[in-house]
Amino acid sequence: MIKMKIRALAELCHVSDKEAFLYLLLSAAGWTYFVHQYLYSTGLGIAVPKYASY
């Protein structure tokens, strides 16, 4: 099932299956970093240890 989804993504992006998988990984990493930074910079991050370094 996951393989088929990745193949469909690869076809949409005109890249190989491996590249499509890499795209997904990098994108997930990017959005995770974005959410972390956004919560941190706006002070909304309840779960983010904002003052942990003090």
Binding site: C13, Y23, L26, S27, G30, F34, Q37
Partner: peptide, 20 residues
């Protein structure tokens, strides 16, 4: 929906490269 999802995926890669 496909375009929006693909777009969000590309932006995620961009954020990884640009900020991380």
């Amino acid at each position: 929906l496909n375009n929006y999802l693909l777009g969000l995926m590309r932006i995620g890669i961009g954020i990884f490269a640009l900020y991380f």
